[in-house]
Simulated scan of single mutants.
Amino acid sequence: SFHHMLIRQHDYSARICTQFMVAENIPVLAWPVYSPDMSPIEHVWDALDQRIRQRVPVPANIQQLRTAIEEEWTNIPQATINNLINSMRRRCVALREANGGHTRY
């Protein structure tokens, strides 16, 4: 599905990004692999997925999907991104209190 395609791309990009940061001695926050809901980008992928599924008509081929992704990515409200950024402190506190387990996020 489209969502799984985005997750695979994100996982690959995250791996490359982490390798770069480690190579450059940039501190990296340990992120439990079993708490993907804590990653703000997952919420952006979900919003993008929902916006594309609500399009009329739904994209029918790769070119239409590419166009839809570009348009809907641009149309995600900045307030949505700001809310995710501003929630990170709460998310990290909740994750610490849950000892790295599941949180409500």
Rank of each mutant, 00 (worst) to 15 (best):
W31T: 01
A30I: 08
T74S: 15
D49F: 14
V56Y: 11
S13N: 13
E71W: 07
Q19M: 12
W45I: 02
H10G: 01
V33W: 06
Y34T: 09
P57G: 10
R15A: 12
E42R: 07
H43P: 01
R51V: 01
N61L: 03
A23M: 02
A30N: 09
N25Q: 13
Q64G: 03
L95Q: 07
L6P: 00
Y12G: 03
N82W: 05
A30M: 08
V58A: 10
Y105W: 15
N86Y: 08
R104K: 09
E71M: 09
R96A: 13
I41E: 08
A60F: 05
R104E: 13
H4L: 13
I69R: 03
R91V: 04
N61M: 08
S87P: 02
P59C: 12
V22T: 03
I41S: 11
I85C: 09
A30K: 12
I16P: 00
M88S: 02
S1H: 07
V33D: 13
Q9P: 00
E42T: 00
G100W: 00
Y105E: 14
H3N: 04
R96I: 08
E42Y: 06
L48Y: 07
A98F: 03
D37Y: 03
L65R: 04
A14I: 06
A60G: 14
L84F: 00
N86L: 12
R66I: 09
N25R: 14
C17F: 11
V56A: 09
T18V: 13
T74Y: 08
Q64F: 06
I7E: 10
Q64K: 12
R15F: 09
N83W: 05
C92L: 15
E72L: 01
N99V: 01
S1N: 13
M38Y: 02
S35H: 05
E72Y: 06
I26K: 13
Q54D: 14
R15Q: 14
E71K: 07
P57V: 11
A68N: 02
N82C: 06
D37A: 10
P77H: 10
Y12Q: 11
L84M: 01
L84W: 02
V22G: 00
F2P: 00
M21Q: 15
S35E: 06
Q50H: 07
I52F: 04
I85L: 12
R91C: 06
L6V: 05
I41H: 11
E70M: 13
N75W: 03
R66E: 14
L6M: 15
A30P: 05
H10W: 15
R66V: 04
Y34M: 07
E97K: 04
F20G: 01
P40H: 04
P77W: 06
A79D: 09
S39H: 09
Q64I: 06
A60E: 13
S39P: 00
H102Y: 10
I81F: 14
T74Q: 15
D11C: 07
T67G: 01
H3E: 11
A94F: 05
L29Y: 08
L65M: 15
I69V: 11
H3V: 01
H102M: 14
E97N: 13
A47N: 05
N75H: 05
N82H: 11
G100R: 04
A94Y: 03
M21D: 07
L6Y: 05
S39D: 10
Q54H: 12
E42L: 05
E42I: 01
V22K: 11
I7Q: 06
D46H: 10
S13C: 10
E70P: 02
L6A: 12
V93G: 01
H102L: 15
